[in-house]
């Protein structure tokens, strides 16, 4: 069976680089599944988990936005931050979730509000990926 090379890179360096059978990512217009031989595509991602299927097993990587670039045998995901499930600092994520919730409770202007919302989303995404409930 053909495989795909996946690269997940962030400004702090590469996070994931391996051969997989299938990729499932959440883009702005919905989930997409990518198999080998996919037509070249570029799509923005939303905060969420990227599922990488390999030999019947799947791995999860938490990404915070960015975009995916697909070529027939190579997929690159460029994002500002990404963590493999096992690398997630769950204590930190829980803390920032709490902070974001507190900020959302308090009165804030629109930009603060959307920023808090985004950071809440990222924190929840990390926790979900860490605990594996996606």
């Amino acid at each position: 069976m053909k495989t795909l090379t996946v690269n997940i890179v962030t400004p702090d360096g590469p996070v994931y680089d391996s051969e997989v059978d299938m990729i499932i990512a959440k883009t702005a217009s919905g989930e997409i599944g990518i198999l080998p031989g996919h037509i070249p595509t570029v799509a923005p991602l939303v905060v969420g988990a990227v599922k990488l299927k390999k030999d019947g097993k799947s791995e999860y990587v938490a990404v915070s936005g960015g975009f995916v670039e697909v070529r027939p045998e190579k997929v690159s995901i460029l994002t500002q931050s990404a963590e493999v499930a096992s690398d997630i600092d769950v204590a930190r994520a829980k803390e920032s979730m709490k902070r974001a919730e507190e900020r959302l409770q308090g009165k804030a202007d629109a930009t603060d509000f959307s920023r808090a919302e985004l950071s809440l989303k990222r924190a929840m995404n990390r926790i979900n990926v860490y605990e594996g409930n996606i």
Binding site: I32, T41, V42, P44
Partner: peptide, 13 residues
């Protein structure tokens, strides 16, 4: 490339 949803939306990100 195919752009999903559109090239403009991708440039936006």
């Amino acid at each position: 490339y195919e752009f999903d949803p559109s090239a403009e939306a991708i440039l936006e990100v």
